[in-house]
Design a protein around this nucleic acid. Sequence first.
DNA 1: CCACTTTTGTTCTCTAATCGTTCCATTCAT
DNA 2: ATGAATGGAACGATTAGAGAACAAAAGTGG
Lengths: 227, 227
Amino acid sequence: MLTAKQHELLLFINQRLDESGISPSFEEMKEALDLKSKSGVHRLIGALEERGFIRRLANRARALEVMKMPEGGNVGGNNVARFAPVKETKPQIQIPVAANDVMEIPLHGKIAAGVPIEALEGQNSLSVPMALLGAGEHYALEVSGDSMIEAGILDGDYALIRKANTARDGEIVVALVRGEEATLKYLRREGQQIRLDPANGSYEPQYYAPHEVEVQGKLAGLLRRYH
Amino acid sequence: MLTAKQHELLLFINQRLDESGISPSFEEMKEALDLKSKSGVHRLIGALEERGFIRRLANRARALEVMKMPEGGNVGGNNVARFAPVKETKPQIQIPVAANDVMEIPLHGKIAAGVPIEALEGQNSLSVPMALLGAGEHYALEVSGDSMIEAGILDGDYALIRKANTARDGEIVVALVRGEEATLKYLRREGQQIRLDPANGSYEPQYYAPHEVEVQGKLAGLLRRYH
DNA sequence: CCACTTTTGTTCTCTAATCGTTCCATTCAT
DNA sequence: ATGAATGGAACGATTAGAGAACAAAAGTGG
C-alpha cells in the first residue's frame, strides 16, 4: 500500500504524535526524512492522505492525525504488549446507505464499563446524519456513566467515534487502558505522561505511561434521545 | 479459485505487506515469482483484483492492499495469532436497524437569542434518522448560549424539537415568551404561574402568567458535532 | 485591537529515477 | 496447430528531490 518514503514518513509522524502529541511541521518532517525541500514532504503527505492513513486540516499548521498504520508497523510507538490483535487495519469502506446523506455505522456497545470494545462487536448499527461525521471510519458507543457529564455527555447518549490512533491535547478520545479498560475521556499530555481527564468534579484525572494507553478513536459527534 | 501462480503472488504480497508495510513493486514481484517480465505480473494482479483478493489504487506505485486470503493461507505473518482467518473483509455493508428511515427536518435557526423562531425560517434542513424522533412533526434549532449547559445542552448543539402545544412538568420545551422571545427551558408549573427553568446556576428561573408563554415544541433529541 | 514578524504550509518549475501499462512476438503444452 | 502463458521492450505516468517565491496562520508588542 505504501512506498518506502511514505512508510517512513508515516512512522515518523506517528512517533512524534505518540510522544508529544504535537504533529511535526513540514520543516521537521523534511529534516527527519533528510530532504532539502518541503515540497517532497507535501507530496508524501498527499499520498498518505489519499490512502487514508492520515487526515489533516487544510491550511492548518501541525494539524496531522494518524488514522491507521500499515501492517508490520507498530502503532503504539513502542512495543506494547498489545493484547488484542488490533485487527483494526483493513479499512472497511463505509458505504452511504440508500438515504442520501445518512450513514449506517456500527454500534459497538457501551463504553466506560471496563470492557475492551472489540469484545462486544455486535450486529447493531445506528443511522447517523452524515453532517455529523467527517471523513473516515466511524462507529458508535453508548455512553454509560456520568464521568463526562460536565462536557455535556450524559448517560445513555450515543457517542460517535472516528477511528484514529492519535489525538491532540484536549480532545475527547476512546482510550483503551492497559488493554483492558476502554473509557471516554479528555486526553492530555503532561511531560512524559498521558493524562486522562474526566469531566466530572467527583472523579480524579488519571495518569499513565504512554504505552499503557491506546487511542482507539476520537469523539466526532453525539446523539441524544429524549422520551 | 486461484491458480498456482496467483496463489504464490498473493502470498508474496501479503508477506511483504506484513513484514514491512510496503507493497512490492512489479519489478520485485517479477523477481519473486522468478519471471522475466513484468507483464505477467500485471495479468496476475488483474486476476487477483478481479477475484477480490487484493485492491489497488489505479496508476499508483506500490499501492496494493490485501483484502482477504484464500483458505489455508494465514494472513497475519508473524507476530500475532490473527484470530479470524479473515474470511471476508470486503466492503461489508452494514445492516440497517429497525427504523431505517430518514427524515428531512427543517432547520429553523438559532434559539435563545431573543428572536421569534418563525421569523427566520430558512431553506436549511437536516437529515435525521427516524429512530431518534418519534411520531409527529419535527424541526431543528441550533442552540445558542449556555443556559442549558447543566442539562448537557451546549452552545452549538442542534436541538431536535417535536411540535407540541403542551408539555408536562419537567420537560424541556421551546417556549415563546410574550410573542417575542423563544428559549429552550425546563417547563414547570407553580400554582397559576409558569416557571421556565434554565439549567445553569448563573441564571435565574423566570415566572410568567400562562398566557404569556406559548409552548412551540418539546425537546426530542440532540445532535452535537465535534471538530 | 492593530501592525509587524516569524513560522508554517502551498505551489510551481526542473530533473531524474522508478514504476506501471501496453502491445506484440515467442514459447509451451495439449 | 491452437490457446494460454511468458518474454521483451517501448511508452507514459508516478514518485522523488531540489529550490524558490508566495500565502496563510500564529505569535508579539504596543
